[in-house]
Design a protein around this nucleic acid. Structure first.
Length: 355
DNA sequence: CGTATTTGACCGGCGC
DNA sequence: GCGCCGGTCAAATACG
């Protein structure tokens, strides 16, 4: 239990402290600087690096993952409990830590409101998330091979990726093909370039303390596989975005060292809007959002909570030993209010131009 | 009945 | 070359 997690949190702790020194908007440009810090600074990175330092540049930020829609971000943000969201966190690309309340029954993030404390849904246990641009955040041990893999992945071409996806789809749809054909396709599928593996898509992983494996992030996913994880009693689940043509995949697994920690990795970019988002915006257009619409509008939910996060966060932090000192600067909060979820999640992107 | 999940088989990549 | 492993497929099954 405390083993890895403890370590992780510990590191994060240090990390954030570090960050604190630089203030969130400090992140001058973007991920790169952040990465630089991480890699060099040590602190949080140690364990995280195992996740995959190389991944760094090629990886997407939240923004990218979510497809660019602010609202969408919000949804995911909720996964981390946006209310507690840490700007820094999302702004940087490699690793971040978010404090959120435990996700209990139900995948819906709505209940996550905890952070704000105002919400009322009581946060039982703090839900903290660490995220990194790499995948195997969970990697924990067998980083060797994975690192290699990812390095190669970086080299991969997106085009091929798409092609492959297409083929696969066709294959699936045109079942008429029979097995023979299937085999054929399969073979055509992979052989592409020698030495180059598929899987180019940027990845992004984060850890969350949650009782449910599959966190609701606003998108619809279909599980297409599950595999036992070596050295872990917990299986890894593979999900694919159900949206047509959307290549995004997601892997979910539990840390074997701390079963309460769920490691989620996203791969690829959404090519569409999140259903939840769409719904939410539609509603807003039709009618003014109800004050506390318990409902699912991630967006409103988040917006309402943002402001209160700070205090609550720190309390939680204490529990988890995650430190998010002064995480939410007024500036950030303002942004949130002004621009919406995405921005608060990925401040660096929104403020990009900042000198 | 349509959709989602489960699960065993298969494939390719990688290390030895 | 062989075996291991991660990732994916797709038939079977469960669920609404």
């Amino acid at each position: 239990m405390s083993g890895e997690d403890g370590e992780l949190y510990h590191h994060d702790h240090g990390f954030f402290q570090d960050r604190d020194e630089f203030a969130f908007h400090d992140e001058r440009d973007d991920l790169s600087s952040f990465f630089a810090q991480n890699q060099g600074g040590g602190g949080a990175t140690d364990s995280l690096q195992a996740l995959d330092p190389h991944a760094v540049s090629p990886y997407l930020s939240f923004d990218d993952f979510l497809g660019g829609s602010a609202v969408r971000h919000g949804t995911l943000a909720s996964a981390f409990d946006a209310s507690c969201l840490h700007p820094d966190v999302f702004g940087n690309g490699e690793i971040s830590l978010v404090d959120s309340t435990a996700v209990k029954s139900g995948n819906d993030l709505a209940p996550l409101t905890g952070c704000g404390g105002g919400g009322g849904t009581s946060p039982l246990s703090p839900n903290s998330s660490v995220y990194s641009s790499s995948t195997e955040a969970a990697g924990e041990d067998d980083s060797g091979r994975r690192k290699k893999d990812q390095l190669k992945q970086e080299v991969d071409e997106e085009e091929e990726e798409e092609e492959e996806l297409e083929i696969k789809k066709l294959k699936r749809q045109g079942k008429a093909g029979e097995e023979a054909e299937r085999d054929k396709v399969k073979k055509q599928n992979k052989p592409r370039k020698k030495g180059e593996k598929r899987q180019t898509e940027p990845r992004f992983a984060f850890m969350t303390k949650s009782e449910v494996d599959h966190l609701e992030d606003g998108y619809r996913w279909r599980k297409y596989g599950q595999k036992a994880v070596k050295n872990s009693p917990f299986p890894r689940s593979y999900y694919r975005c159900t949206s047509l043509k959307c290549p995004v995949k997601k892997r979910v697994e539990r840390s074997y060292q701390d079963p309460t920690v769920v490691i989620t990795s996203y791969e690829g970019k959404h090519t569409h809007q999140s259903p939840a988002t769409a719904r939410a915006s539609a509603q807003q257009l039709l009618a003014p959002p109800p004050p506390a619409a318990a409902s699912t509008s991630f967006r409103s939910h988040l917006l309402m909570q943002q402001p209160r996060a700070p205090s609550a966060i720190q309390q939680h932090n204490a529990n988890v030993s995650v430190n998010l000192p002064g995480f939410q600067s007024p500036l950030q909060q303002r942004q949130v209010a002004d621009y919406g979820l995405l921005q608060d999640i990925v401040p660096s992107f929104t403020q990009h131009g900042q000198p």
